[in-house]
Design a protein around this nucleic acid. Sequence first.
DNA 1: CTGTAGACTTGGAACGTTCTAATTTTCTGG
DNA 2: CCAGAAAATTAGAACGTTCCAAGTCTACAG
Lengths: 405, 405
Amino acid sequence: MIASLTWRCSAELRVGLDADCGLDAKRLWRYGFIGTIQISLSPQRRPIAIGQDRTLIAELKDAATRRRRVTLIDIARHAGVSKSTVSLVLQSSSLVKEETRQRVRRSIDELGYVYNRSAANLRQARSNMVGMVINDLANPFFAELAVGIERVFQTAGYVPFIANSAENPWRQAEVLRSLREQGVAGLIVCPSRGTPRDAFKDLNRDGVPVVLAMRRVLGAKAASVIPDNQRGGRKATEHLLSLGHRRIAFLGGYRDTFAHAERSGGYRLALEAANIDVDPELIVVGPPNREGGEAALGEVMALSDTPTAVLCFNDVVAFGVLSGLKVRGLSAGSDFAVVGFDDVADARYASPALTTVAVDSGGLGERAAQTVLRMIHGDARPEEAIGDVHLVIRESCGAKAREAA
Amino acid sequence: MIASLTWRCSAELRVGLDADCGLDAKRLWRYGFIGTIQISLSPQRRPIAIGQDRTLIAELKDAATRRRRVTLIDIARHAGVSKSTVSLVLQSSSLVKEETRQRVRRSIDELGYVYNRSAANLRQARSNMVGMVINDLANPFFAELAVGIERVFQTAGYVPFIANSAENPWRQAEVLRSLREQGVAGLIVCPSRGTPRDAFKDLNRDGVPVVLAMRRVLGAKAASVIPDNQRGGRKATEHLLSLGHRRIAFLGGYRDTFAHAERSGGYRLALEAANIDVDPELIVVGPPNREGGEAALGEVMALSDTPTAVLCFNDVVAFGVLSGLKVRGLSAGSDFAVVGFDDVADARYASPALTTVAVDSGGLGERAAQTVLRMIHGDARPEEAIGDVHLVIRESCGAKAREAA
DNA sequence: CTGTAGACTTGGAACGTTCTAATTTTCTGG
DNA sequence: CCAGAAAATTAGAACGTTCCAAGTCTACAG
């Protein structure tokens, strides 16, 4: 006689049990069950059975678990070979006979087998996952960079995953930890602002190759692929000087990033070479986005001696500056010169089209990816690559207008 | 006597062996070794030893492998508890005594332990990884969506990874397979064009919740979070009609996507309601990017009876149209009306500022993420959510200019 | 028939966790 | 000092792969 039967489980499993293993009074009776069974399911659907009838409980457990994933062993059984052989087939080894290979492949298709990468990772450290940690996905520049990186990894048989650190070192640490737990084969990181020098310590210890893109981290043990920020800043400033500008501002970006130091460093160098004193009031820092650009412009335009030209930390800041000029009734390219940095896709579509320092995001991304691949394959030298930059002269600097005149 | 000793290994490991296990002639002698040893290391640093002296080889192998990662068992040994206890500590279970917990934590810090998620995944299906598959990361709209999604998952303790399918179904399949192998807990997919209805079959079988964002896939078993495209298209068209336009084009996007069908459907509906015949020449399809927009504009402007207004498939297409108008010496907002779709961040900064249908990307993303979370936690109902849309009137449609006049 | 080389195949031990069921320790009230 | 409950701990079996070492075939020469 059934004394009591307590269910604590999701509706789905109840159905699953009822249907699949036909748990009902009759069946319990058939098993000669007398007593209490309690089946409870943790959220992950693993059954816990407490009761007196071992056989029944085992049965129930088995039934509840029956809906498990198809494994390599199932394939082996189905194809009539050993699991080792199936494993070899999966690795497209040349050791298995063509005929066997096909039989196994057929079984795989038939049973809908899914390779379990976790299990593989557990056994062999190598994985085919590479990570990309981007500090600001909303900035199209980084999106372009990510696309370049992806292309390389994709063709090399690695699967790239992107994570966004949102310029937050704490979150970046979280993401890096997670990637490490996941067992990434390699990493490309555009480090967020304020990344501590030991951020990659753990990864280094595990021997995971790390390549820094776009930004350096002082003291970090990692390769880096970085555009020639200083030369870019210098070239852009020299161009503005050659157009006759003498009061040139440098807007946007935070002073504690390397990119800012280098880009504004080039700007200083050019000014000094032209015997112009650098006016600290003309260097305005701020968030490297549109709002930051607009705000920074406001700040320099409020000065008694306003600039006639600005070099922006990046294109997005420059877009903000262009908006700001429009609001003020000024026209970039004639009344005022604006130069950006990065040459994102939108730069040529801005109005006026943005003169900017092209850093070849796609090329840098590919370079970074190649470096990671080389490091994965054993070349341990953490090299430092500097990407070439060049000035793309469009309309916002006024050079075209002057030429035409 | 030592006959020969061949090394084929990375410099790092040689140091490791020399230092760690003191491999030298004396030691070999002590082991009474006579013969040849060859130790070679595969790139993953697994030692392969070939030689005569089993004992020594075993020793060497052990030594070479000694630099293995710190495991939970090492922690247990160090803290003087069982591995089960350590596991419980890692899961911050309330079952362990505070004192023990602290001792274990200390050991973890001291030994620099790294949680191995692969091993955990192997044992329990649950993982804290969620995936986001985006069809076009270069489109700022999807980047914004991704950011909204990320926020929710982050606070819920899940780690979101983004993968780009680049509007390529084959690549999307690749990415989905990889995510499945990785054991994701849930997925948000912006399906690429041409996604087959059974693209999520395998994921469904594994019980991985899938939420489609922005686009439907006919016949797919998945929840979806989609903006009210039709209403948006209709509202925008009605707005243009109310401004007196009678020849309104619909530009960009591919006919085989649901978004296109719905958005252009709303456009048709509005026209029909106003008793205007839909002129098929005014519906031009093309890639949903700037270039596509510019090209599509070129096509309708080459007609004998050119339109006076366009509704664009999305904002990026609209940007292309704005560029195209500028090239033609036309001015959006006065000579011509342009309306976009999505309301990306850049829309208000376009010149003229873009009138567009706002779909609240952040909100949609959050909604999608919430749905995935609910499904992960057992609520199996695949719901279909329709996001509200509203028209944001700026300058490109000419309404503001008319009001001012 | 034997030996052996080569081509395939395979059993079984890892890998580092989690989970269950059980055991041990501690606490409580008599 | 004991029984029983509660709290804390733990042994050991999974999980699904890979890799090594050791097979079993087949073919062919002697």
